[in-house]
Amino acid sequence: MKNNKIIENNKVWFITGASKGFGLSLVKQLLAAGQKVAATSRYVASLVKAVGEVSDNFLPLYVNLSDEKSVAEAIQTTQNTFKSIDVVINNAGYGIGGSIEELTDEEARESFDINVFGTLNVIRAVMPFMREQKSGHIINISSIAGIAAGTGWALYAATKFAVIGLSEVLADDVRSMGIKVTVVAPGAFRTSFLTPDSLVMTKNPISEYQDVRNSHARYLQMDGNQIGDPEKAAAAMIKIADDDNPPVHLLLGEDAYSRAMTKLGVLEKEFKLNEELSKSMAYQG
């Protein structure tokens, strides 16, 4: 059944990490609305099964996001098939829990490869097409952890802070070309994020990091009981992609909003507390 109320204009969408979570909700809603969707996954058969639809509007693609060539080929295939790419949603990513000392260099780099460099690979590959058509919207999915991080999630927060930073500057860099950028910071949503499919935990816990263990336990207890509805999050992202003036930053979830506003208050207090010292750096005489 069509649901054209969620979006007014026909677009071509490119969505990473589409076989579960936000990605899957986005694909299903968009196809129901008659949109053209290229959806990527490392496991195409699982993606097709999860979507449960075969149509000319649905282009499932295998992509290894850490491989620039694989990403470029998927973008080119989408362009060849649908003749344009109007909205990119960089959704793929995973969580990683542990203190910095408890996680290996390899684990840290693998996390950045997908959560950050995968996003960069997609942006680099799609920008020539968006520049040529002088339009497009890039939506990067970060996390509230990229604004207000929690104990025990240092590397995950680092990747998500990076996504927010690169999105803010990208928005300035491409605005004059007619291209829009939004970075989305969701809170806790009832997806598979807290399951082993989407979350890597340290294999080398150190006993002194008891606060980290306690923090992880609190988060893991939320699995299946998160207050956020992923269908509503997907609908919100679709809505902003249809706006003439979409926001650069979008918080999703009451918890995300509360944590972000608390962080703003903490920053303001700390900055003002050291205002005199901060401003005393100029040469004298």
Rank of each mutant, 00 (worst) to 15 (best):
75 I>K: 00
73 E>A: 12
69 K>C: 03
70 S>A: 13
58 F>P: 07
76 Q>F: 00
44 V>W: 04
82 F>C: 13
55 S>F: 05
62 Y>T: 11
47 L>D: 03
62 Y>L: 09
69 K>Q: 14
61 L>G: 00
54 V>I: 10
51 V>T: 03
55 S>C: 08
46 S>R: 10
50 A>D: 14
77 T>G: 12
56 D>M: 03
78 T>M: 07
55 S>D: 03
51 V>N: 08
45 A>N: 11
78 T>Q: 06
42 R>Q: 05
51 V>P: 08
64 N>R: 15
60 P>T: 02
70 S>L: 11
80 N>T: 14
48 V>Q: 14
57 N>V: 00
79 Q>L: 13
57 N>L: 08
63 V>F: 08
44 V>K: 04
56 D>E: 15
80 N>Q: 15
75 I>S: 00
48 V>K: 14
72 A>H: 05
63 V>K: 08
60 P>M: 09
73 E>G: 00
63 V>C: 13
45 A>I: 01
62 Y>M: 06
65 L>T: 09
47 L>C: 03
75 I>L: 01
65 L>W: 04
48 V>S: 09
74 A>Y: 02
49 K>G: 09
56 D>T: 07
73 E>P: 02
44 V>Y: 03
62 Y>K: 10
67 D>I: 12
71 V>K: 06
52 G>I: 14
43 Y>K: 11
43 Y>S: 14
45 A>K: 09
45 A>Q: 06
58 F>C: 11
62 Y>P: 02
52 G>F: 06
70 S>I: 09
64 N>T: 15
56 D>Q: 13
75 I>F: 00
80 N>Y: 01
46 S>P: 02
58 F>W: 12
61 L>E: 02
76 Q>N: 10
62 Y>R: 12
42 R>V: 02
42 R>A: 01
65 L>N: 12
78 T>R: 07
62 Y>F: 15
59 L>G: 01
78 T>C: 13
69 K>Y: 11
44 V>I: 09
62 Y>H: 13
56 D>P: 00
74 A>N: 05
69 K>M: 12
44 V>M: 01
57 N>F: 00
47 L>T: 02
78 T>D: 08
61 L>F: 01
72 A>C: 05
59 L>F: 13
70 S>T: 09
82 F>Y: 15
72 A>L: 05
45 A>H: 07
74 A>E: 05
74 A>V: 10
76 Q>V: 05
77 T>L: 11
60 P>A: 01
44 V>H: 01
50 A>N: 15
53 E>T: 11
42 R>M: 01
64 N>S: 15
69 K>W: 07
44 V>A: 01
77 T>N: 14
